[in-house]
Design a protein around this nucleic acid. Structure first.
Length: 707
RNA sequence: GGUCCGGUAGCUCAGCGGUUAGAGCAGGGGACUCAUAAUCCCUUGGUCGCAGGUUCGAAUCCUGCCCGGACUACCA
């Protein structure tokens, strides 16, 4: 029984190009859509560019052109990239469309009618020079808590404190450099709390969400009253003006998800379909694929909007994690922030589609692209195993075509056909890593068959011509099964296989019945091996121009030789420890070392990360409620101070510490403790039940670094 | 600090109450030469993070701890 499925990916923002991180989602979704279509379901894939908001407005202004011109250019680039990666939307729209404007009005009217809208005045920073209110990202200033300068508009990078932009001391607009003023303006809010009961139920019911997400929402948001959602922005703003609130615009996150519906509307108009059949029919399943960063919008606001406006709720919101490269966050300076263009210049899109497939599961975990793993997977799995099957047999049957009757293969084809259900289940549940594993296991059975039947020997004897044709018919049918199962992941390989065997791949069930009697086309390579050097070149190309990073690197180099010596000494001393040394008349016992053996070796670079400084304790006080902590104020000289909570209450009296020099870890990430922020650490020797602070020799000054 | 996820072979992972813990890759040995230096056969390698508990039986369930990651921040 065919299902009706409407599938979406999150709308990419029109402010930047598509990169390999975005592609995790579009590839994941496209595989799922292609799988559903291959299974014979009525499935449509909708997406659009997300075009509204301050960022677009500002950028258009900076580039001296209209927003419309900017978003048209970005959209063309996005669509080109998606097409190059074989991501096939049924409709790709824009949130800046008449369909979307009309639907936003419809949703809005319903929300108004349900009594969910209220108006409140909001104070925001206003840049009178640029003539606009400032979103968080366009403001910098001094942190109201720790007083660090030049911090972003939402939270402090030094102490981690969160605040509103208007709390910043000496705020500066990053648009004009002007000092913004505080202005208040009326904003419209949706009172989401009125939908609390519905959302609490919906998020927990019927596996609409992955269990970890449902659980997270319950604990994180639904455990307390839902906050009102500020969905309007005063002019100037690039978006849709709210019909019953002139001068105010819908916030981009209001109109963006409605863009899913608007995109479907465009598709419907083109195909003579009714929107209701997709968005208001209980027979249609709506599936959203999104990244974990926008969970909040898609699992609370959006279902609330749909429910209120009388639209279908999602059958499932599939949430994925982020891409990391070589185990780290994508980084522009490391060149791992690879744009799809840069990738396409050097590599085959099939590689990335396959690699992501082998890494994706139904969970929200981040996904890592490790360069050597990428190369190994693509070459061994796809080229050496899968494509190799065709590559080593097709040319033997170029002249004869496939046998007219499928020969006895000892049950290989039937076994692979039977595996189809399990593979399909894995695709259905978005567990593509499992699907690809199951498929590759089939390839591992097909190659030995070729090995045992030696077509290269059969071809030498004209009397074996029939057997040769049979062996190759079997091998190519086993190959074709793999191509069918991999078709959602590798549409190009499926097309090539269809051409090779003169029978297009259009349905999952084709894997159940052997193909016989068709001509076989001349074989040409289906997929090139991937070269590791191309990946490295791609990463090099993604790095920004050489800039300010150089002095830092030189600095590290300069400290290395000096610091290398003590390390070498420590290592040799440790190695010599078991031997008696005549010069050592102290015979210190081995207990302390034995109690805490040496840590694993570290490099000089590792050591250089830790900035140890001489510091003076200028004040020390008890923290009455704390069992172990003393609150210390350390001076690094020149008026630089650090507040540190040290776990030495049991061993030192505060007054005996004041004035003395100690060694502190000066670049330790600040940590908010129960009694305040600790901005460093004082080093001390000792096991768990004793502590001895270190004091430098005479002459050391606060601020001296330890090398 | 809290919440969630994870820790199984050198690497990526499967197994998630029932023979002696598996696969692929990498490593070692051999075979083959049709194939994109591909393939095939054999093989080395593991106190399943640690410690308790439940059970006839635990990698698997429970508790505590340690480590890694994600999210979040006076807070579920």
């Amino acid at each position: 029984m065919p299902r009706r499925l409407l599938v979406t990916s999150a709308l990419p923002y029109a402010n930047g190009p598509i990169h390999i991180g975005h592609l995790v989602e579009y590839i994941q979704t496209d595989i799922w859509v292609r799988f559903q279509k291959l299974r014979g379901h009525e499935c449509r894939y909708m997406c659009a560019d997300d075009t509204h908001g301050t960022a677009i407005m500002i950028r258009a202004r900076q580039e001296g052109r209209s927003e419309e011109e900017l978003i048209a250019e970005m959209q063309a680039a996005h669509e080109r990239d998606f097409a190059a990666f074989d991501i096939e939307f049924d409709n790709y729209g824009s949130t800046h469309s008449e369909e979307n404007r009309r639907l936003c009005g419809e949703f809005w009217a319903a929300i108004r009618k349900a009594g969910l809208v209220k108006e409140e005045s909001v104070e925001q920073l206003y840049d009178s020079q640029a003539g606009t209110f400032l979103a968080d990202r366009f403001v910098r200033g001094t942190c109201p808590k720790c007083k660090s300068r030049d911090q972003p508009g939402d939270n402090c990078s030094v102490c981690g404190h969160h605040y509103a932009p208007i709390e910043l001391i000496d705020p500066i607009s990053t648009l004009s450099g002007a000092k913004p003023e505080i202005r208040s303006a009326p904003h419209l809010f949706i009172e989401l709390e009125k939908l609390h009961g519905f959302l609490a139920e919906w998020t927990q019911a019927d596996e609409h969400l992955q269990p970890e997400i449902a659980n997270y929402l319950q604990g994180h948001f639904l455990g307390e009253p839902l906050r009102d959602w500020d969905i309007s922005r005063p002019a100037p703003y690039f978006g849709f003006e709210i019909p019953d609130s002139p001068g105010n615009y819908w916030y981009v996150w209001f109109d963006a998800p409605i863009g899913y519906v608007a995109s479907t509307q465009q598709w419907c108009d083109r195909h003579g379909e009714k929107l209701e059949r997709w968005w208001k029919s209980p027979d249609c399943e709506i599936h959203h694929f999104i990244g974990k960063d926008i969970t909040y919008f898609h699992t609370l606001f959006w279902p609330g909007m749909l429910k209120t406006a009388g639209y279908s709720l999602p059958a499932k919101v599939h949430i994925h994690g982020f891409l990391t490269v070589n185990g780290e966050k994508m980084s522009k300076s490391k060149g791992t922030f690879v744009k799809s263009r840069t990738y396409l210049d050097r590599l085959d899109p099939s590689y990335l589609r396959y690699f992501y497939a082998t890494k994706l599961s139904s969970r929200v975990d981040d996904l890592d692209l490790a360069i050597d793993e990428f190369v190994a997977k693509v070459n061994t799995d796809l080229v050496n195993k899968v494509v190799n099957l065709a590559s080593r047999t097709a040319k033997f049957v170029e002249k004869t075509g496939l046998s007219a009757k499928y020969p006895d293969d000892g049950g290989l084809f039937a076994a692979a056909a039977a595996a189809g259900d399990e593979i399909a289940e894995a695709f259905e549940s978005c567990d593509y890593s499992r699907a690809t594993r199951l498929i590759l296991a089939l390839a591992d059975r097909a190659n030995p068959f070729v090995e045992e039947n030696k077509p290269w020997e059969l071809r030498k004897d004209p009397a074996s011509a029939g057997r040769l044709q049979d062996v190759c018919t079997i091998a190519l049918n086993l190959f074709r099964q793999l191509a069918i199962y991999l078709a959602p992941v590798l549409p190009k390989l499926a097309r090539q296989t269809g051409e090779l065997l003169n029978d297009p791949i259009t349905s999952w069930d084709q894997a159940k019945k052997p193909l016989v009697g068709t001509p076989v086309a001349k074989f040409s390579h289906m997929l090139q091996r991937v070269e590791e050097k191309d990946l490295h070149a791609m990463i090099e190309e993604s790095k920004p121009e050489i800039g300010s990073a150089t002095p830092a690197a030189a600095n590290v180099g300069a400290t290395s030789p000096a610091a290398a010596t003590p390390q070498a000494d420590a290592a040799s001393a440790a190695a010599a420890a078991p031997l008696a040394d005549a010069a050592d008349k102290w015979n210190d016992p081995g207990a302390p070392l034995a109690a805490e053996p040496l840590a694993s070796q570290c490099t000089i670079d590792d050591f250089a990360k830790v900035d140890l400084r001489v510091a003076r304790i200028v004040s020390a006080e008890e923290v009455p409620e704390a069992r172990k902590l003393l609150k210390l104020k350390l001076s690094l000289g020149g008026g630089v101070y650090k507040q540190v909570f040290a776990g030495i209450k049991a061993y030192y009296e505060p007054q005996q510490l004041v004035g003395r020099l100690v060694v502190c870890v000066a670049n330790l990430a600040p940590r908010t403790m129960k009694f305040g922020v600790s901005e460093g650490m004082v080093v001390a020797a000792g096991s768990g039940n004793e502590a001895f602070l270190l004091t430098p020799d005479e002459g050391a000054k606060p601020g001296h670094r330890l090398h």
